[in-house]
Nucleic acid binder design. Structure first.
Lengths: 352, 352
DNA sequence: CTGAAAGCGCTAACAT
DNA sequence: ATGTTAGCGCTTTCAG
């Protein structure tokens, strides 16, 4: 007795999880053909392709991601590395990236890199990240060209947001101009003692954006024949609380500023809060200009420089995904035109 | 001539990428031993383990994630599904989840589920998500028990934040009490016409949180012997812009409210903005209470109900990770005590 | 245009 | 305590 009808193992091993073999058997073709048909590769007869696709759909078959990852070496996932995970900037970047990636069938994995150690671990691949993602969107952090080339050599494509790079594409705004524009606005209003709320305290070299904005702040002063004063340069950590603290320091100065350039709206919000608590009139006693055009800046009537961060995220993701098929990245820079949105927190100084 | 020295293929195929076989060869043991030694499994001599680990480190070997995923069926990744990707709430949840997951060696993948279609696709596994992640944190969305059980059957563990579930654990606050507490505060101040800014317009049944808060709003009215008025119930989409628009509608009413319970601080911010534009004095002409205790609520001096969302995210992730080793989840509920933070946007009505 | 078969790199039974 | 080996499910030459 040859068990023609009864000796095969049950074809349904894990319920509801059809494999490529199940599809092949049902369609009467080989697994190779199924693979080709489903991925739309050439050299498959139209009739075969249709049949395979129909049967695959019936069995609600989808290729096991782990198996294809192993076979192809591509993970169909990209990472977004951000220094500060909460906060307005981050969430908008991620929203933009996620939308594009999902559309393209890629997973979006978020990577916190708040500590220098995490940053090093990521770039030196101490946790094997490059085998879990195909590409990486860096937000605002900078590494040396050598380090970035190291990533490229492990064939990880990168796009940066904010920070520019000479080896990978990047998207953002011209941060030197941001600093200049904001500062010029205050100078034109008649301010002469202008403080600046900068970024992260630790590891400043890793974050080029604040540095560039500070450069613009300096340029604006020089163009107007003014000197900058280091004591007016305070770290605000890009947070509301940091902005609050920073202004607290500034007001303790012998000669406090009459205006503040905050490198982010969130720091500006903190500044406004402190001013309010101290009964300082804005803009009469203190002018404040921010950067971002956060949804809430209109609520607190903050003068700021607009930037569409969600769109930056989306464009970065698109650049990255497009680049994945390319051998070598092109270090292009996508830059939005700058727009100063003048609202109620800036005006001439009282003493002017 | 037998090519003893020259006929083997170059052991270094992909540069810098040692496989488990390389380690085994270098350590003079089998791949099985390497696997055990590295993962800390029992039944490995201490000396062997040490040697293997040293050699693995020298070769900077790390198991290929795709290969282990394929072999074990576990992806070492968890997903966070959020209806609104940008916005304060989301970013805090993700920050909390990411911190815990990274610590535990898991990847965090973000999943946007803003459209009903995306929600369905996720729950019915139309895109094969359950093979890419081991667990899922749902934020504020609710599915039927059957649907959730379906997920469990495909051995995907779930923890929800905000929304409660009778099949999976969840973390959040008591949203009925939130609605009651906020509303009672306004009633005690003397308000009788209290509007409420609710959640998403489409698919309200999918979002239980606003529904529960609305229930509390109703309860507070009833306890005080007051009636609710459907025309005072307006959708605000949990966004600043939505809050703005909602209050615009409310003010057009024949008999506008004297107070507003906004179900999120962001909607409250929008409300404040509109009030300011219209020259409406807060709280004299209009009281506003929010929910969240957003960093900025202190800046705009908003009365609100506190909640630590980042911590919710962290606890949800921890619950999820712990549950991964368990067979069946326990539908426990972790709930923070409620805290009303009274600030400057609420006061007695002018007419009182 | 289609099929057979050799991996991809790891894990987990099953031996020893 | 350690080794052997059979998969995991897919992709991709190489033949035909």
């Amino acid at each position: 007795m040859i068990g023609v009808t009864g000796s095969q193992p049950n074809p349904i091993s894990r319920p509801g999880r059809a494999t490529i073999e199940d599809v092949a058997a049902a369609a009467g073709v080989s697994v190779a053909t199924v693979s080709r048909a489903i991925r739309g590769l050439p050299n498959v007869a139209t009739s075969t392709r249709d049949r395979v696709q129909r049967i695959a759909a019936e069995l609600s078959y989808r290729a096991d991601p782990a198996a294809s990852r192993l076979a192809t070496g591509r993970s169909q996932a990209i990472g977004v590395a951000v220094p500060v995970l909460n906060g307005w900037y981050f969430s908008n970047v991620v929203a933009g990236v996620e939308a594009v990636c999902t559309e393209a069938g890629y997973d979006t994995v978020v990577l916190g890199i708040s500590s220098a150690e995490q940053r090093a671990r990521l770039i030196h691949d101490t946790d094997g990240i490059h085998r879990r993602i195909d590409g990486l969107v860096f937000v605002d952090v900078s590494y040396s060209d050598d380090e970035l080339i190291g990533l490229a050599d492990r064939n990880l494509h990168v796009v940066t947001i904010g920070a520019r790079s000479s080896v990978f594409p990047s998207v953002g705004i011209d941060d030197v101009e941001v600093g200049r524009l904001a500062t010029e606005h205050l100078i034109e209003l008649g301010h002469r003692r202008i403080a600046v709320l900068t970024g992260l305290a630790e590891d400043p070299l890793a974050f080029p954006v604040p540095l560039r904005r500070l450069e613009g702040y300096g340029l604006a002063h020089r163009s107007a024949g003014l000197e900058t004063d280091r004591s007016l340069e305070v770290v605000g950590n890009f947070s509301v609380a940091g902005g609050y603290e920073a202004v607290n320091e500034l007001l303790a100065l012998d000669e406090p500023p009459t205006a503040i350039f905050a490198m982010s709206d969130e720091m500006a919000f903190g500044a406004i809060q402190l001013a309010r608590e101290r009964g300082i009139q804005i803009p009469r006693d203190l002018s404040i200009v921010g950067v971002d055009d956060h949804e809430l800046s209109v609520v607190v009537d903050l003068t700021t420089i607009h930037q569409d961060v969600e769109d930056h995220g989306a464009r970065a993701a698109r650049l990255l995904l497009d680049g994945l098929s390319t051998e070598r990245p092109i270090p292009a820079r996508l830059e939005d035109p700058l727009e100063l949105v003048v609202r109620g927190t800036t005006g001439p100084p009282r003493t002017a």
